[in-house]
Design a protein around this nucleic acid. Structure first.
Length: 470
RNA sequence: GCCCCGUUCGUCUAGCGGCCCAGGACAUCUGGUUUUCAGCCAGAGAAUCGCCGGUUCGAAUCCGGCACGGGGUACCA
């Protein structure tokens, strides 16, 4: 079998990498890695109107953040570069002209208004809305006048069918008379996706074109181009498209889509990829938590389901929590520590974060849950959820007891406090609630005794005295 | 309108002719553990397998029609 080379082709037209692209990237990545193939990134920046400055940068860094390392791409190079379509314009032009020369494409100068009107007419009469072939019939030539606008359209046969075998969906067939004479070169000189994707996939020796369902209906156009140019076509596989909760195509209006959002929310890459892997696919034994490496062992492209799954952030949250708490090893603790440290933009000391991890590992689901729970470790509470001004007496007694402690360890603190509560005949829950408020300002916190040990005797006493001094 | 793809608990899915009056996970609810929260443990409810017909001794599983959902229909990708 020939070398596996697959690619994802994001367009820099959004804020960041789209989560739908992450899904496609994951499938491509796993497929490439399990077959010792190459995973390639190609930037499809042919739409100048929708180009967003800085988008490409963010897309690439998001891919890296996710850990989907690529072998060839705009910033790493490779044998078939450049990997940015705006830098390959001559190539597209050259092949477009070849198509025209061989009568497989033609120049067209129809106005948008005429095309609009034409489509309206067609629709009202129950016809498919495709180009009516005016310029094809008139054998339009390339305009002599440089200012005259024109496009190049693909010449689709009037008869016959174009079919292809989809790895996931089987045979898919289209009647040629219903396929539009697709624009290949726009009037601004840039190619459309349809030309660029074929030229690049061929030149870059892409073996498998694995993309989302939304491309199925343009695939026959691509196949025709391959045929016209005498090129061998790649193997096609159209995966499902991720959906909003209401089942429509995943969109930023109805669901968070940018990777940056997930990052800000405190999701970790492993969990995001693992969750995505569960969309349309499952492990043979039904296991839901697994690594990329495990997935590679069992993933079979053909087994991907063709149904568009709804993206469920709640399950992602659960999974993220699983990742955070599941692994109790020292190495994971170190990793978690640095993830939290990074997440908090290095504003809080690593040593303290490290100490607190055993206390919070089982109670946070996202990295963003850390600070609300642990802020009191780094500074005295700004505000208290309960007024303790009538508890001065109690607090004084607590101070007295704690001062006696030589060993400021969790067990001793616990025992001392327990004894005091018993002696004073205060309900346990109430007693510890007051103490908790005094330490953390909040009614909910990590385990108290351990937290006090981490704070240290001086700090604990200082926080208590805050209530007794005027 | 026209073309294409799809249809199992609210959601993600297992299932590839008998093991399924359908199994797991998330979510929900109940109980237990507990100085808070979370976690953990135990349990419950939740799918007439979209509908109708056909093939078969036997269908969630195969075939056909319909309905519904989604995608495409752009000088966007």
């Amino acid at each position: 079998m020939k070398d596996v080379r697959v690619r994802i082709a994001p367009s820099p037209t959004g804020e960041d990498l789209h989560i739908g692209n992450v899904y496609t990237a994951l499938i491509n990545y796993v497929f490439a890695r399990q077959r010792n193939g190459k995973f390639i990134i190609r930037i499809e920046d042919t739409d100048r109107a929708r180009l967003v400055p800085g988008s490409e940068q963010r897309i690439l860094s998001s891919i890296k953040w996710l850990g989907l390392n690529y072998d060839e791409g705009p910033d790493v190079g490779g044998p078939y570069g450049p990997y940015r379509q705006s830098e390959r314009l001559d190539l597209y032009r050259q092949y477009a002209e070849k198509l025209v020369k061989e009568d497989n494409a033609f120049y067209c100068n129809c106005s948008p208004e005429r095309l609009d009107e034409m489509r309206k007419q067609q629709q009202s009469r129950g016809f498919p809305t495709i180009y009516d072939g005016k310029c094809k019939r008139e054998h339009n030539q390339k305009p002599k006048n440089k200012n005259e606008k024109y496009v190049i359209r693909l010449n689709i046969p009037e008869e016959g069918k174009t079919e292809f075998e989809d790895v996931i969906r089987g045979k898919i067939s289209f009647e040629n008379r219903l396929i539009d004479d697709q624009v290949l070169i726009k009037s601004d000189g840039f190619p459309t996706y349809h030309l660029a994707v074929v030229v690049d996939d061929h030149l870059m020796k892409i073996s498998h074109c694995i993309r989302a369902e939304e491309w199925i209906s343009s695939t026959p156009k691509h196949i025709l181009i391959y045929n016209y140019l005498g090129w061998h076509q790649p193997i096609f596989a159209h995966g499902p498209i991720l959906r909003n909760p209401d089942k429509s195509k995943l969109s930023k209006r109805k669901n968070p889509v940018w990777v940056s959002w997930y990052k800000q929310q405190g999701f970790i890459p492993e969990a995001i990829l693992n969750y995505l892997a569960l969309m349309g696919w499952s492990m043979p034994d039904g296991k839901e938590i697994f690594s990329l490496n495990e997935m590679m062992k069992y993933f079979i492209l053909k087994d991907l389901k063709a149904i568009g799954p709804a993206f469920d952030v709640r399950k992602l949250e659960w999974m993220n929590g699983e990742y955070i708490r599941k692994n109790q090893s020292a190495s994971w603790r170190t990793k978690l520590k640095s993830q939290i440290y990074e997440y908090l933009e290095k504003k809080y000391p690593e040593e303290i974060i490290d100490k607190t991890i055993p206390l919070i590992q089982e109670r946070i689901k996202k990295l963003s849950d850390y600070l609300p729970l642990c802020e009191f470790f780094f500074q005295q509470p700004q505000k208290y959820e309960l007024d303790l001004s009538d508890k001065k007496g109690l607090i004084k007694q607590i101070i007295e007891e704690l001062e006696k402690l030589q060993n400021f360890k969790e067990d001793d603190i616990g025992e001392t406090m327990q004894n005091l509560a018993t002696m004073l005949k205060i309900k346990n829950s109430e007693f510890f609630m007051f103490l908790r408020i005094a330490m953390t300002g909040k009614k909910i916190s990590p385990p108290l005794n351990e937290s006090m040990e981490i704070l240290g005797k001086d700090e604990v006493l200082k926080r208590l005295r805050y209530f007794t001094s005027e």
